[in-house]
Design a binder for these strands. Structure first.
Lengths: 351, 351
DNA sequence: CTGAAAGCGCTAACAG
DNA sequence: CTGTTAGCGCTTTCAG
């Protein structure tokens, strides 16, 4: 069997509790005994059993990240920020993909709570209603939300300023002269996406542009693709599309290519997130930049604060700012040719 | 405090061990008592403590995935396959990013072993030498490798047929008439990348094409970018580049755009992996398709087989096949103009 | 500064 | 089919 604390205690000629104190870096042990214990432990190739420790301390030093799909580069970025922050605080991070499936999400949550993870980071599914919220609270685990739930909650949230991002996108398209504008987005009641649309509509409205035609689908690469394939054939009047996120925008881009609809000459396209690859797709995507890595990082920090406070920490809403990144996928409505030439001259825009 | 097994046992009027049997879905309990226990558990909102269970059973039902960076879409895909497979078997997956840092990797491994994860999936850092291998073995944890270590090992591996992929890339470029070919790749001694180069060189050699100029850097988006910025200015004779993976190829693409080097008109570019976005970058990337999701999935299955066998399972090497996907980033050397015109139909190019 | 004792919450023989 | 009895490997009072 594996060598235990008792084994090394015996070998070092001390009591298990003393050995424990040494290995936990506890203050108040004789430097001599300490060194001896450490050495014996090293010699015997001792591996502390953290699950045993967790049983008594009640801390697992494990967090979880519950998202829809890690293949979405947005979440990969968030995940990396979260993992770095977790690791910096001595925690591991469990990755869970819920695919926007409410049941799957609930199963994960139950399972995670049984494993006594210290806290959970999640972008909740669309329909996080009162009843579900109650279940979450019953879990008695600190949770930080990465999107805004439809109802006021007890949970802390950290997210990008989605409303402002939508507003930036809307006023930019309006300013370019577009009037027949579509918005391709994900499921309804998705906190972040909903806010984006709100801000977008508000901007169009205040610029006296007709409200956008809104189409719901999957907020993913293939979701955007499918939506575009279905919509672009019928609605030939559309001159600009605001995609709910970059992944969808990429899907729209692929569909447009297949349909021989040039971007931005015939349709302007703007995304949301500013994923790494936005700058090299064809054409480089104009989009709203969100602090993805920082969101993951900040969310973990908030979460850990809750964990350490043990429930006595008041919820906080943290909103990180966004900005418009202009590349080459949008063009003025009136002067298409000029725009095309200009974009060419500009080459690429660093941000 | 939280309600424990004892609590619900008492409330249901049975012994803790009986309650345990009910909740573990153990056969051989009276259906009546079983129902009663389950109901009481539900009423009292009982949450099984899996860390306590783990302490006695020795199984944590947690696996770990140790990769260089989840932001690499290749790994995101692998991770998703792994997570799905793990979840299907009732396991959670811890995500670790090592950034190709040997020390960081070793720290993760130690920490994971202390947490008593059931098994680890990893793409080892470049330098997995004998001494390090010994340390891994001392961990006494089932490990499945996602790349081929430089020395023969006791570990199972599951990976793409990198050699064949390199060969496909090489013979394709040779067939297009290229003779001055560069290979941009990651650190030396990286199992998979090394194989790719081997296959590539073999193909060039058997086509009587001079061996490739090999440049090592970071095998990432920015790594490819930096390499291209540094190399393309000086080596004007290069007509084709084989990038170690798609991420690098994207970086090369960005650099080429900045340097006003048209792809594929002046330089042909081929990648490796066939990441989702390869089809929509500018221009769509010709690349080698690898079964990423399946690798993650198969690796977890192999890993779990080892876990269940408890060390008595012989190591197995599993190699999944690859194929060449021809898009628009490569052109024949002799007929550049034709190629340029063709590519133009697809979308827009800088020039 | 160190030892002894008492669990953390659960499962696993072993009886009954 | 169910209860009793021991722990799993560690931390943590509480004495000394």
């Amino acid at each position: 069997m594996a060598v235990t604390l008792k084994d090394i205690a015996r070998a070092a000629g001390v009591n298990a509790s003393t050995a424990s104190r040494c290995l936990s870096g506890f203050q108040g042990v004789n430097e001599g005994t300490r060194q001896r214990v450490m050495q014996v432990a090293a010699e015997m190739n001792y591996r502390l059993n953290r699950v045993a420790r967790g049983l008594v301390t009640g801390r697992s030093h494990t967090l979880a990240l519950l998202i829809s799909d890690i293949r979405n580069p947005y979440f990969a970025e968030v995940a990396r920020g979260a993992e770095d922050a977790a690791h910096a605080s001595g925690c591991d991070l469990i990755l869970c993909n819920s695919d926007f499936d409410g049941d799957k999400q609930m199963n994960y949550l139950r399972s995670l709570s049984e494993k006594r993870v210290d806290g959970i980071l999640m972008n909740s599914v669309a329909s996080l209603r009162r009843e579900q919220l109650k279940q979450l609270i019953d879990l008695r685990i600190p949770i930080v939300l990465l999107n805004k739930p439809p109802v006021r909650t007890e949970f802390s949230t950290v997210l990008a300023d989605n409303h402002e991002g939508g507003r930036l996108a809307g006023s930019y398209l309006a300013q370019l002269g577009h009037r027949t504008i579509a918005h391709f987005t994900g499921p309804k009641h998705h906190g972040n996406l909903t806010e984006r649309l709100r801000g977008f509509s508000a901007a169009l409205n205040s610029a006296r542009v007709p409200p956008p035609l809104v189409f719901h689908g999957q907020n993913s690469f293939s979701g955007g693709y499918q939506l575009a394939r279905r919509i672009l054939a019928d609605h030939t009047g559309i001159t600009a599309i605001f995609a709910g996120n970059d992944a969808m925008a990429f899907g729209v881009g692929l569909a447009a290519r297949e349909l021989k609809i040039p971007i931005p000459e015939r349709i302007s396209l703007i995304g949301f997130d500013d994923v790494d690859l936005s700058q090299i797709v064809n054409p480089p995507l104009t989009t709203i930049q969100t602090p993805k890595y920082e969101i993951g990082q900040a969310a973990v920090e908030t979460l850990l604060r809750h964990v350490r406070a043990g429930g006595s920490q008041p919820a906080e809403q943290r909103i990180l700012s966004v900005k418009l990144v202009i590349r080459e996928s949008c063009a003025p409505l009136a002067a298409k040719l000029t725009a095309a030439r200009q974009a060419d001259v500009g080459g690429m825009h660093e941000d």
